[in-house]
Design a protein around this nucleic acid. Sequence first.
DNA 1: AATTATTTTTAGATATGTCTAAAAAAAATA
DNA 2: TATTTTTTTTAGACATATCTAAAAATAATT
Lengths: 217, 217
Amino acid sequence: MNSLSEENYLKAIYKLREKNNAPITTNAIAEAMDTKASSVTDMLKKLSAKDLIHYRKYQGVRLTSRGEKTALMIIRKHRLWEMFLVKKLSFRWDEVHMVAEQLEHINSDKLIEQIDKLLDYPKFDPHGDPIPDSKGRIETQKVKLLSGLKRKSSGIMKGVDDHDPSFLRYLDKEGLALGCRIQVTDIIEYDRSLKISVDNKKELYISHEVAKNILIG
Amino acid sequence: MNSLSEENYLKAIYKLREKNNAPITTNAIAEAMDTKASSVTDMLKKLSAKDLIHYRKYQGVRLTSRGEKTALMIIRKHRLWEMFLVKKLSFRWDEVHMVAEQLEHINSDKLIEQIDKLLDYPKFDPHGDPIPDSKGRIETQKVKLLSGLKRKSSGIMKGVDDHDPSFLRYLDKEGLALGCRIQVTDIIEYDRSLKISVDNKKELYISHEVAKNILIG
DNA sequence: AATTATTTTTAGATATGTCTAAAAAAAATA
DNA sequence: TATTTTTTTTAGACATATCTAAAAATAATT
């Protein structure tokens, strides 16, 4: 069994590799976890001793297959709990993260399999992130950033990169939700902001910063 | 916020007072929590400093109203989660305790209120224990031990004192469940074992030890 | 290539929660 | 009441996970 802290490190390492496909540095982990590099080094030794990561001093880190499996199971639990909170307990998508951060560490195979079943084996969580199945397999959507679309092109909103509650509430307010059809009607060169139409009904302007965090597929 | 360890101590102290109405000693807590008296003393100081218990050296311990409220909320969460596992996730009553021990420490008011609502505000958990409401109020059933019933008297099985999985599975096997009508048809003087009829259908013998752990109301 | 800057690791400290062994207090017994 | 036994507390140690400050290694720059 792994400690809560160990689980959080594995998850952070997994997510860093998911983003950049670069080697994962001590400092990157420290920043992602809001802790100090020296604490990270200590933990890397521990995880290495447990054969959850490959670690050579000064050389960065990657998950072993055991470590990756473990990380995927934590992510599976996190995303299933988020889905449960939204679908069964009327949570909004901006409220689920903090609670799921706690629930993801609950240890019970039966519990998570039953939650999965109750939700009818969802493939994606409320933010559009894929949910690993019980074997750790993940279904990837081919998506691009809304900020990368050309004028006149359109697609379906499939996910968000930023999970910050204030960002999510902003999307709610503007009527931007997963499943919406978004068409880029204009691109303002000056600040790269976009004029978009949502479901062919509503037009609005969004900043480049916002567009960078919306996934279109 | 209280640590996991602090929460477990508060719960243990609450439950000890619930059983015997006697002052709660350091050793009693140590035994209940399977730890050493010295560890208990350390924690009692901590809880006392947080104004969760009244503690004077060598004089035993009792919860402050703050401490009792906190304990009740932990017990509320534990019992609601047990109910959730049984009613929504097909857990058996002998499987729920270990998982609920983890879930009871999840911190989210909205989460527990929504679970309560989803279950339609149950008053008792799968073992017949009362579930404190969101204000900490508890509905007490007036029950007696099956071992205390006289010959020919009967009642409804309302709860169990022992939550040990092997005891609960034994009850399942014999068809003894909450809600059953149990009549004492004979008392064997030699070992105080009972002959009982269950729902006027089935007759069986149970030991005094078993009867001591069945609550009738 | 030598120097400077940055990153990473080590060394030693701190806080939490636990333990053993010894001391102190309370309770039981003679 | 004095003595013995039991209970409780204290003192000091240990493990986990964190931190700061300094040292070591690597990377960047002149």
